[in-house]
Simulated assay, not measured.
Amino acid sequence: MDKTTKTITSNKSKIGTRYMAGVAMLSALAFVLQYLEFPIPIMPGFVKFDFSDLPALLGAFAYGPLAGVLVEFIKNLLHCAVSQSATVGELSNFILGAVFAGTAGLIYKHKKTKKMAVTGALAGSLLMGIISFPSNLFIVYPFYRVAYSMDYPTIVGFYKAILPSVNELWQCLLIFNLPFTIAKGVISTVIAMLIYKPLSPILKGRNQ
């Protein structure tokens, strides 16, 4: 093996190690952030906000879209151990987070500029919000209805306390959950734009 080949092999090994270490670190951070959730006054009390998608977005920018999806997968896999929803909540969280980070990473990978990063993350936020509608309607809420013995009028009642004009679950999800999910992605996008540049040397290696 000549010197050039050895150098290429060594560089690939370093990149692979950095990739795995970065994904593991961001996954652990996302797992912790998933616990730091808080209620939003304009949403029912059981719908809470957290920043756990932010590390996945950073991973998608630093290492590519697959890394963002992996962070979401590992985060939710770890959270399954303490799941209060028989992993249904984690499944939905993974689907939405993977859509968000994966979309952002794919668009940013095409052209690595700040404008494309913002475009990708906002597109991911919008798509995540759209996917949240069928995800909640057909997966999450049917499970909660059975698991907690709550009929749909009871669930809708939590939303009616905020907006009396809603009468159907799909209306609640469209008016409340969909924009909330988009806003959650947008907030992660804003934070990512502020911190990604100073964090990039750490994520990618200080020599880059």
Rank of each mutant, 00 (worst) to 15 (best):
I130A: 06
K114C: 04
I155K: 12
R206I: 14
L77R: 06
L203C: 05
F38H: 02
K197W: 06
L126Q: 03
A183Y: 01
T103D: 05
M25D: 04
G45K: 13
H79R: 13
F158Y: 12
A67K: 00
F49V: 11
L174D: 01
A121L: 05
M25R: 06
V47C: 10
G157N: 08
I139Y: 02
L199E: 07
F31M: 10
L178H: 00
L199R: 02
K6P: 07
G105L: 10
F73A: 15
F94L: 12
E72Q: 15
L173S: 05
E168T: 14
K111V: 04
I95T: 09
A28V: 11
R145M: 15
V69L: 04
A60Y: 01
F138T: 07
G120E: 03
T87P: 02
F94R: 09
A28R: 00
P201Q: 07
L127V: 07
S188G: 15
P55V: 01
A192R: 08
N11Y: 05
I187R: 05
L36Y: 01
S200P: 03
S83N: 10
L194N: 04
F46I: 11
S92K: 11
Y159Q: 11
I40M: 11
K204L: 15
L106N: 08
H79F: 09
S85W: 00
K109G: 02
V23M: 04
S135N: 15
S135W: 00
M25N: 06
P201W: 02
M20N: 11
F49A: 08
L173V: 09
A101P: 04
A81S: 14
P153E: 12
Y19Q: 05
P198Q: 07
I182P: 06
Y148M: 14
Y196Q: 08
K48M: 11
F158E: 12
S83F: 01
Y159G: 09
G68S: 08
G22K: 05
A86T: 13
G157A: 09
N93Y: 00
